[in-house]
């Protein structure tokens, strides 16, 4: 019962942010469309289905690309792929960050020092460089981009969790657990972890947004998701050529717009979530 009212309070605070509510609705629509791509896409995303480079028509509402594939279907599938990459990369980096942060903050001492200096190392690396080098080295593709982004984005989470654990360790309820001899596992996972979930969740939304941007940039450069699998980044791949840029806007404007919309909605929702979950707000 208590949980329900707590959730209700968070929801109420969230609903105050009108922009975020609009964004959440848009985001849900985009995600549902992307997930339903196999059902609602009128054509195959990888097989030609019409004339080459045709502008939008009744049959192909967003036109076709240079080998006659339907752009609307390709964007639907691409959104699915980009969301998948962003989500899994965020999941990996959050799990890695939470585990390292928990260990570092709870045990302290030499373990803490070792983990934190490793974190500093990864952080003081212009990480696009790491991503580029790694992407060039491992066969580029969907799974390598997920793993690369996942193992590059964790330091922020680790620091956040460590800081939280350090302050939670000083609270009375954790101290009483320690003095009453509760097992470490219980203290870590049943007492400390639930109390760090809110900030981690908020941070994860920004990692999600960043991962989508990074996937787009890497795929655009040809080092991410490889054709024929469409992703929002590699759809824009051909836009550098002058004839596409000037004469065929349907090939690059919609995909770019979807990226901006996705990332912006995630950012707005994350920001409102931060406000709603902040216990200092009344």
């Amino acid at each position: 019962m208590k949980n329900k009212t707590h959730f209700g309070m968070i929801a109420r605070r969230f609903l105050k942010h009108k922009m975020a509510v609009v964004c959440l609705v848009l985001l849900v629509i985009l995600i549902v469309l992307a997930l339903l791509a196999p059902v609602i896409a009128p054509y195959s995303p990888t097989k030609p289905s019409g004339k080459f480079s045709s502008p939008p028509t009744a049959e192909h509402i967003l036109g076709t690309d240079k080998i006659g594939r339907d752009m609307y279907s390709r964007i639907l599938y691409a959104t699915q792929v980009s969301l998948e990459v962003g989500f899994l990369a965020t999941l990996i980096s959050t799990v890695v960050g939470v585990v390292l942060g928990l260990i570092s903050g709870y045990f302290g001492g030499a373990v803490d020092k070792a983990i934190m200096s490793f974190t500093d190392m990864v952080m003081s690396f212009p990480y696009i460089l790491l991503v580029l080098v790694a992407a060039a080295i491992f066969q580029p593709g969907k799974w390598s981009i997920i793993l690369i982004l996942g193992f590059v984005d964790w330091p922020g989470v680790a620091r956040l969790v460590r800081g939280n654990v350090l302050s939670l360790r000083e609270t009375n309820f954790v101290k009483s657990d320690i003095t009453s001899g509760m097992p470490r596992r219980y203290i870590l996972f049943s007492e400390i972890l639930p109390n760090t979930i809110a900030p981690v969740l908020v941070y994860a939304t920004s990692v999600f947004a960043l991962s989508i941007l990074d996937e787009a940039a890497l795929s655009y450069l040809g080092m991410g998701v490889q054709p024929p699998t469409p992703s929002l980044g590699n759809l824009l791949n051909g836009a550098e050529s002058l004839s596409v840029l000037t004469g065929k806007p349907w090939l690059w404007v919609p995909a770019g717009a979807v990226i901006i919309l996705l990332v912006m909605c995630i950012n707005f929702v994350g920001d409102a979530l931060r406000d709603a979950l902040d216990p200092r707000n009344e």
Binding site: Y220, L245, G256
Partner: peptide, 20 residues
């Protein structure tokens, strides 16, 4: 809102728009 928009535009896409 403008700042959210700024941080949501991929650099390469903004480059394309500017070049266009």
């Amino acid at each position: 809102s403008a700042s959210f928009l700024f941080s949501s535009i991929p650099g390469f896409f903004l480059s394309l728009i500017l070049i266009y």
